[in-house]
């Protein structure tokens, strides 16, 4: 998926905001279905079937969210059955299904987003807001794996001292607190050395440049503009069709405007795949010409 993931982080972030945003704020069943399929599809393209357990978890979440609405909300005219004197209505079921689809689709969009947004990319996005903030994030990102390693080291060393028992949960908890305390000292003391090193290299002496490895190229601008335009068209289209769940489920008839919206959203969802294909074709021609 390099044709998509290697694009400028700003474009990628805007794409995800557009794709997830339309899904999040709409209750149109057609849009939601397209969004759900697209989100799951993109994640599978990025990640493969690797984490089957998390997919099952998502399925569980979908079912739970779909069920919770009809169980707690009893409006709606079409009663399907009665449980404990409470009617379960078709309308509430449909709403639950739509909400569940919206939630799971959004989650999948965000999962793909997190997968693409590595530390550098995140830094690039936030560094635009504030270079100082970007620096804090960069330092924190560096410390996280370092602390994980140090945690294991401290744990082992303290164990070999043979001073503490490890027989029950209270001992274990105390042991963890001890390791955490030692870690804190170590982290704070060494942090001061980092601060010295920053001062030695002139941090805080004046305005800072924000240097990045990312550039804006034609493809990045294309992705940015397409994301915004397609999202705009789909919003405009979706606003042209009213969806009503209560008291009776009712979808106003399909107009040209709504259809245009659906098509635009479909294109938006497929955009990563389109960019990828474009890249593959370009590569194919290049190697063919050679």
């Amino acid at each position: 998926m390099q044709g998509f993931t290697e694009r400028n982080p700003i474009s990628v972030a805007v794409y995800f905001l557009a794709a997830a945003g339309v899904a999040m704020f709409s209750m149109d069943p057609v849009l939601l279905a397209v969004s759900l399929c697209g989100a799951v599809g993109l994640f599978l393209l990025l990640d493969g079937l690797g984490s089957l357990r998390s997919h099952l978890w998502m399925l569980g979440l979908f079912l739970l969210s779909a069920v919770i609405n009809p169980l707690t909300y009893h409006n709606g005219r079409t009663v399907l059955l009665v449980v404990n004197h409470n009617p379960i209505t078709l309308e509430a079921c449909l709403y639950g299904l739509a909400a569940a689809g919206m939630i799971v689709a959004t989650l999948y969009w965000f999962r793909s987003f997190s997968r693409i947004m590595t530390g550098d990319r995140l830094l690039y996005l936030l560094g635009g807001l504030s270079p100082g903030l970007a620096l804090v994030i960069s330092m924190a990102l560096r410390y996280v794996p370092l602390y994980g390693r140090q945690w294991r080291r401290v744990e082992e060393t303290q164990r070999t001292l043979g001073l503490y028992r490890e027989e029950n949960a209270v001992d274990t908890l105390r042991g963890k607190a001890r390791v955490f305390s030692a870690m804190t000292t170590w982290a704070l003391e060494n942090g001061v050395i980092t601060a010295d090193s920053m001062a030695a290299r002139g941090y805080g002496t004046g305005r800072r440049t924000h240097f990045t490895l990312f550039r804006f190229r034609a493809d990045d601008i294309l992705l940015l503009v397409l994301s915004l335009v397609l999202a705009g068209v789909s919003l405009w289209g979706a606003a042209g069709r009213t969806v009503q769940y209560y008291p009776v489920f009712c979808l106003s008839p399909l107009t040209g405007r709504a259809l245009a919206g659906y098509l635009a959203y479909g294109a938006l969802v497929l955009l990563p795949l389109i960019l990828q294909t474009k890249e593959a074709i370009a590569w194919h021609f290049w190697s063919w010409k050679k």
Partner: peptide
């Protein structure tokens, strides 16, 4: 400074190289 690990500020090699240059503006 003496200790190699603690005087590094940022998380990536390239970013560390340009840290001082960024400070120079």
């Amino acid at each position: 400074l003496q200790r190699p690990e603690e005087q590094i500020v940022t998380d990536k090699v390239w970013h560390e190289l340009c840290f001082g240059l960024e400070n120079m503006g």
